[in-house]
Design a protein around this nucleic acid. Structure first.
Lengths: 198, 198
DNA sequence: CGGCGATGTTAGTCATCATTAACCGGCTCG
DNA sequence: CGAGCCGGTTAATGATGACTAACATCGCCG
């Protein structure tokens, strides 16, 4: 059996997930390596067999989140040969919304970490995450500028951040509503709020 | 001159403000007492002449924010003898929105701290802050239930959290738009997003 | 004047942590 | 079989950082 192979892979993933949840709950500096270790049943320095340090954990978590969001966005927006029509743009916005909402509802802890811990990341990786975030925002802005051509980009960007705030409220309204009810609510609210950009 | 009186009052306020800004920028655990001291020109343990400890600083900051929001909300909603009509409710919602938006635009750092640092507060005060937050949310829910009587409370609460997320996006979209443009944009987006509750 | 309360200062003290060292069992592969 | 890596373990080690002690200044009030 590939006993050593698979378990190793699992350990890494387990650690990342546990770390993400702990960071979400108590913040990067509020969590010790020992905490992370015992969350996965090993103790303390065992973490260093899988990651070079605490910051490396955060880097990997944040890069993964940013890449997932950006890549998802890029896939949805760039895939067809983009007739650049208003109808196409509406569908693209819909896809962006759906993707972001699904992610936020499925991973409230990751959303929280993504929103709060950028500053605690080591410089080179922080820049990469910021770049990915910027690209993701620009995808939204591109789609929105198709739908609201008279709206200045700064306004579109501000509105995009506002919509992200709305969608990323999932960690705070956890449990109020089941996801099946939450998703359409957020979708509807987002679309309606963007309609004021006309 | 009242040299000792006024300076003291100022020091306290100075410290609170500096601490709030530092907490907003680097997180509670990312800031040392020494940092806070030097931000106001004294060094380190001088802080203990004004506050009993680091947590006391956070407590005072968060309690102040929560109280300001709640009190502002209560004032606007409870003041007249509440004819309980839809027109009155619309005005109340408007007032709540205006109050929250003004606060968020004037104090992005405080909004950030309020959103991120609840967990780092000592237990008894944390409960008080949570209570104030709950009361504030319930004020919104009360007004909204007047406007959308067929909407179940859980849905109203979820929508309220979503709107808070939208309004509290100010720290992230800082600088995109001047406040004079930001305020009506957020107001419009919030009102429009809530209209889906019908 | 003399003392005292409010504010600071600098030098500990004590915990907490990230990270490293030194050591070990077991699985695989030659 | 046996060498070696993989993943763990438990003890340092070294910083950092909250908080306390002991001592200084200074303006006011008696």
């Amino acid at each position: 059996m590939t006993a050593p192979r698979t378990p190793t892979r699992n350990r890494r993933a387990e650690i990342l997930q546990a770390a993400a949840e702990l960071f979400a709950a108590r913040g990067f500096h509020g969590v010790s390596i020992e905490d992370i270790g015992s969350a996965v049943g090993v103790s303390g320095p065992a973490i260093y067999r899988h990651f070079s340090g605490k910051e490396a954990l955060l880097s990997e978590i944040l890069l993964d989140i940013s890449e997932r969001l950006r890549e998802q966005g890029a896939r949805l927006v760039t895939e067809p040969d983009a007739p650049a029509g208003s109808a196409y743009a509406r569908a693209a916005l819909d896809a962006l919304l759906r993707g972001h909402i699904d992610f936020a509802l499925a991973n409230p802890a990751l959303i929280r970490v993504h929103e709060r811990e950028l500053d605690n990341m080591p410089e080179p990786d922080r820049r990469r995450v910021r770049r990915l975030q910027r690209l993701y925002v620009e995808e939204w802005v591109t789609v929105l500028s198709e739908l609201y051509p008279d709206c200045p980009p700064a306004r579109l960007r501000a509105a995009t951040h506002a919509v992200f705030g709305l969608l990323n409220s999932t960690p705070r309204s956890a449990g109020e509503l089941p996801p099946e009810a939450m998703a359409p609510l957020l979708h509807g609210m987002a679309v309606a709020s963007l309609a004021v950009l006309t």
